[in-house]
């Protein structure tokens, strides 16, 4: 017998003879926060992320331009802002090892946990979100769901090969509980609310 058949046979021989039905999971959304954006912002801060307040007028991307000013290598996967490392030309993940800032757009965000979903479609090369020193994420304020129950009903989890919730930057406190950002992945995560351009293919 193959190991597969062996294991399945052993499971069948040992299945507990009890009746356990599969419960339905409610959405638990009866009491949503007044503002999803405010709740997202608050929870993102708790997770060590930075919410960039957009300027009240003029160039909405100014907060990002300030952050990346002086950076050597910026890799952008969004049409709103250009970098100097073309992700389309990246052959192997390790070619991204010298990136200072990566700029990507989130598929959506979760107010409950301050999380952003980044998929392989958002990242183009998955490793960019981990090898870069810092990560900047554009989020359309209308792309925020109230909680994880709503989040997991989104199509991204059925369509994409890779989808990752980022809730703040890379963090560790493995030594004496001292919190450190940038354990292995990005040292900081910044989020700027920017509406999607209407010709963005993801919204179509």
């Amino acid at each position: 017998m193959s190991s597969r058949d062996d294991i399945l046979a052993s499971i069948r021989a040992n299945l507990p003879r009890v009746d356990r039905s599969l419960p339905d999971v409610p959405l638990f959304d009866a009491d949503p926060p007044v503002s999803l954006l405010s709740a997202f912002k608050e929870n993102l801060h708790r997770m060590g992320g930075m919410f960039l307040d957009p300027p009240s007028s003029g160039d909405i991307l100014v907060p990002i331009r300030i952050i990346i000013a002086g950076a050597k290598i910026v890799c952008s996967t969004v049409p709103e802002i250009a970098g100097n490392r073309d992700i389309a030309g990246v052959d192997a993940s390790r070619d991204l090892a010298d990136v200072d800032f990566a700029i990507v757009r989130a598929s959506f965000a979760v107010a409950e946990t301050g999380s952003l979903l980044l998929t392989d479609a958002d990242l183009h090369v998955n490793a960019v979100a981990y090898l870069a020193q810092h990560l900047i994420v554009l989020l359309d304020p209308t792309d925020i769901v109230v909680n994880l129950h709503h989040a997991y009903r989104r199509p991204d989890f059925r369509d994409r090969h890779y989808a990752s919730f980022h809730s703040g930057p890379s963090a560790t406190a493995d030594i004496e509980g001292v919190l450190i950002h940038g354990a292995q992945g990005v040292r900081s995560l910044s989020v700027l609310p920017v509406a999607r351009a209407t010709d963005d293919p993801i919204t179509q």
């Binding site: 060590g48 994880l148 989040a151 090969h161 980022h166 809730s167």
Partner: peptide, 25 residues
């Protein structure tokens, strides 16, 4: 969803792990 809401809160008292990654292929 039920388990992701419980995991890190139970483990570390953090609402979520910094990274929750879904590999489908």
């Amino acid at each position: 969803a039920v388990f992701i809401r419980l995991l890190s809160r139970s483990a570390l008292g953090s609402p979520m792990t910094q990274y929750t990654s879904h590999f489908r292929g």
